[in-house]
């Protein structure tokens, strides 16, 4: 238990164990009380952090919630209170619902693929002995690429005139038209998003695998002949804390952090391209100048993500064993 990646995994598992305790209301360790001479001193220490949270999180949130009840003049001359109109309009519009459907689909596919492939690569990399360092570095290096750059690189691969993927598709008789055909664009978005996220999952899964004690693996080797059985019964349950952490992170990634990739792919393209809810918020608000509508959308999104996270902790996390 000496490797650095291992401490990463430990750190996140303890963080989640603490979150879980917080959620279930237990306090394992009694709260340590620190005494200050003056009552104001602790607040002084907290002030910078509180200011950051307030300015960059609460203030915009409050702004979003307020402006979601108003219909704003495109040129910023005034706003009219319209109640829940913005919400009903968003939730009943076909465009919004189809974007929501695509977001859900995108979220499931990208999370499943990037978790699955990340785990597969980690399991394989864990077994590599010769050249392991090079192998790992090559796999991880993609993580260092900024999302917009990843989008650009992906765009070159999927380019309609000279992209190698377009050429490969052409060999199979498919005319790949990313940015024009809905599902072709969707495929490109998924491929690039998954590619970008695999290294992250790989790092965590690999460190998770390496934190499975050698003797436990050896005990399993004596208890079960089939490698697949050992993986399912021993390795996978021991990876569960890592996997749960990654699931939460990956869903957040697909919902929010794929923005730059989507932007690179669909920007300046015809209007019928697939996009996620976050991108639509940006598009309606800043390209469509509909601040009220876009605020309503972002509030809906906030609620959905909060619900999703609560559900994950409530139901899935119960099955996770923290070592």
């Amino acid at each position: 238990m000496t490797d650095t990646p291992l401490s990463l995994a430990e750190a996140d598992s303890t963080l989640f164990a603490r979150l879980r305790r917080w959620w279930s209301g237990e306090t394992a360790t009694p709260v340590k009380r620190v005494q200050f001479d003056r009552p104001l001193t602790p607040w002084m220490f907290l002030l910078p952090q509180l200011a950051v949270v307030a300015i960059f999180f609460y203030w915009p949130s409050v702004q979003a919630v307020t402006s979601s009840f108003y219909l704003e003049d495109p040129f910023g001359f005034g706003a009219t209170f319209v109640g829940l109109d913005n919400y009903t309009e968003a939730l009943t519009s076909r465009g919004y619902m189809s974007t929501a459907a695509f977001t859900a689909f995108f979220c499931v596919v990208v999370t499943a693929l990037s978790l699955g492939l990340g785990l597969l690569l980690a399991v394989k990399a864990d077994k590599v002995i010769r050249g392991a360092e090079t192998y790992k570095t090559l796999l991880i290096s993609v993580y260092a690429i900024a999302p917009p750059v990843a989008g650009l690189i992906g765009m070159m691969f999927f380019d309609m005139h000279m992209g190698p993927f377009t050429q490969i598709a052409a060999w199979f008789g498919h005319d790949l038209r990313v940015g024009i055909d809905y599902w072709d664009t969707a495929t490109a978005l998924i491929v690039i998003s998954v590619w970008k996220q695999i290294p992250y999952n790989f790092i965590f899964f690999l460190s998770g695998l390496q934190s499975v004690p050698v003797s436990v693996r050896e005990a399993a080797l004596i208890d079960a002949k089939s490698g697949w059985r050992r993986f399912c019964d021993i390795t996978l349950p021991l990876l569960a804390p890592t996997a749960f952490f990654l699931l939460v992170i990956n869903i957040t990634y697909t919902m929010f952090d794929t923005f730059p990739i989507i932007d690179v792919i669909v920007k300046d393209k015809p209007a019928n391209n697939p996009m996620t809810l976050v991108y639509k918020v940006y598009l309606d608000g800043f390209k469509g100048n509909d601040i009220g509508g876009s605020s309503a959308q972002s509030v809906i999104l906030m609620v959905v993500v909060a619900l999703l996270t609560v559900l994950q902790f409530r139901f899935l996390e119960r099955r996770v064993h923290y070592g």
Binding site: S215, V216, A219, I222, K225, L238, G323
Partner: peptide, 20 residues
């Protein structure tokens, strides 16, 4: 033969119990 086929049982220094 694989360890599982040798018909032996081993007790490890750090117990090596399956924690889950």
């Amino acid at each position: 033969l694989d360890p599982a086929e040798r018909d032996i049982a081993m007790v490890f220094q750090n117990y090596a119990l399956y924690p889950h």
